[in-house]
């Protein structure tokens, strides 16, 4: 028996229709998860069933870029009751607004120190993403250069165009540090820490932040 897992993008509006169709076709609800995207939150719903050829199909449906500030997600617990822990979890850890959950804990499923802790983009993740963006930009620039060099032999117009391309991609890495935004992110991060430790951490953070700003100024 084989196994296959697939990812299909869908719209938020189609969720209930899809769930009904899967329910009627005899699929088993496997899970629902959230993942932070560049903009908003990605929601992934998974269903599993054995198809006629005997292959087990694990079908994941991805709703991209859900915005918790303006949108609500309809609950699928009307079709699959077993979704209730995941929808409560999505609410408590990501701040996803779920409407019509059959067993709704109203934010008391996980009692954590802050709202939506999983939705916080940590400094580590931010740094990693920026680094990846820089590497990607450098790679793109290198490729463009190689292309330009190749094109340069063929025609004279191409190099100017290719050289202009990598510039905007490299810009985000050099964005100025916003001390207020960094401080707010840091405060959110240490919300659960005991006050004594938090004070120490805050002092260390301020020193680091100052250094970073100076380093950037020096760099410019």
């Amino acid at each position: 028996m084989a196994f296959q897992s697939t990812f299909t993008p869908i719209e938020l509006g189609d969720l209930l229709n899809l769930t009904r169709a899967k329910h009627d076709a005899g699929y088993r609800f496997a899970q629902m998860l959230c993942a932070m995207a560049d903009e908003g939150i990605d929601l992934v719903y998974s269903f599993i069933k054995q198809d006629d050829e005997g292959t087990w199909q694990l079908e994941n449906y991805v709703i991209g870029g859900y915005d918790p500030a303006t949108q609500t997600v309809p609950s699928v617990t009307g079709y699959f009751l077993s979704a209730f822990p995941f929808e409560n979890e999505a609410h408590d850890l990501f701040g996803v607004k779920v409407e019509g959950n059959k067993i709704d804990f109203a934010g008391r499923f996980y009692q954590v120190a802050m709202d939506a802790p999983m939705a916080v983009i940590s400094p580590e993740q931010k740094a990693a993403r920026e680094k990846a963006a820089r590497i990607a930009a450098a790679k793109a620039a290198k490729e463009a250069k190689a292309k330009a060099a190749a094109a340069g032999e063929a025609g004279a117009d191409a190099p100017a165009q290719a050289a202009a391309e990598p510039k905007p991609a490299a810009q985000p890495a050099a964005a100025p540090i916003d001390p207020e935004a960094e401080r707010a992110a840091f405060e959110a991060k240490i919300a659960g820490v005991d006050p004594e430790k938090a004070d120490r951490m805050r002092a260390a953070f301020e020193v680091k932040l100052k250094k970073r700003i100076e380093a950037q100024k020096g760099g410019e």
């Binding site: 996980y110 954590v112 120190a113 802050m114 802790p117 916080v120 991060k189 659960g192 820490v193 005991d194």
Partner: peptide, 10 residues
């Protein structure tokens, strides 16, 4: 982890 305060002595 965000939801761990520390050891039991806390």
């Amino acid at each position: 982890c965000y939801n761990v305060i520390g050891g039991v002595d806390k």
